[in-house]
């Protein structure tokens, strides 16, 4: 009977600490791949996340804030949104410290802007997970 082993891929990636890769990829989108020598993929992830985040900010999408009141579903949406916002790393912190915080205005533009910022963070999470798997030799 054949014995199955975990899929560990031989990789030409330079050795980097997975924690360092995760931190770098979170703070600067694509930098995890850059550290691992995947410069083309790093550039694609960086551009996609920065473009999505910039569109969200240009559309004056509000950042999510902790919900004080409201039902469990509202709180779930708010905290999920915060997670998505924070996943943008330095982009989020720079925007916050620069005083970016438009009010939640009526209309579709601000609503889409807010979702774009969250989606940029979620795309960055995909990049972080991919960089982690390369760093731990689970994929190339």
């Amino acid at each position: 009977m054949p014995v199955t082993t975990p899929a560990v891929v031989e990789s030409a990636a330079p050795m980097r600490s997975p924690i360092l890769v995760i931190l770098a990829a979170w703070l600067v989108p694509g930098s995890g791949h850059f550290l691992l020598g995947r410069r083309g993929r790093a550039a694609v992830i960086f551009c996609a996340v920065v473009v999505a985040f910039t569109i969200g900010v240009a559309m004056r999408g509000p950042l999510f804030a902790p919900a004080v009141n409201g039902d469990i579903l509202s709180k779930l949406i708010q905290y999920g949104g915060i997670l998505g916002d924070v996943a943008n790393g330095l982009l989020y912190f720079i925007a916050s410290f620069a005083g970016y915080g438009p009010p939640d205005a009526p209309g579709h533009a601000a609503d889409y802007g807010s979702k774009f910022i969250v989606c940029a963070g979620l795309l960055n999470i995909l990049g972080i997970v991919d960089a982690y798997e390369i760093a731990t030799r689970k994929k190339d």
Binding site: R41, V44, I45, C47, A48, V49, V51, A52, I55, A58, M59, R60, H108, A109, Y112, G113, F116, C119, A120, L123, L126, G127, V129, D130, K139, D140
Partner: peptide, 27 residues
Amino acid sequence: MLKLDHFEVAVLFALCASAVLGVVTKR
């Protein structure tokens, strides 16, 4: 303030999302 309609927003999102999905999935 950038004003985009529903279609433009959806196409831009599709562009960003498919670029990242393409990069992180295949070999």
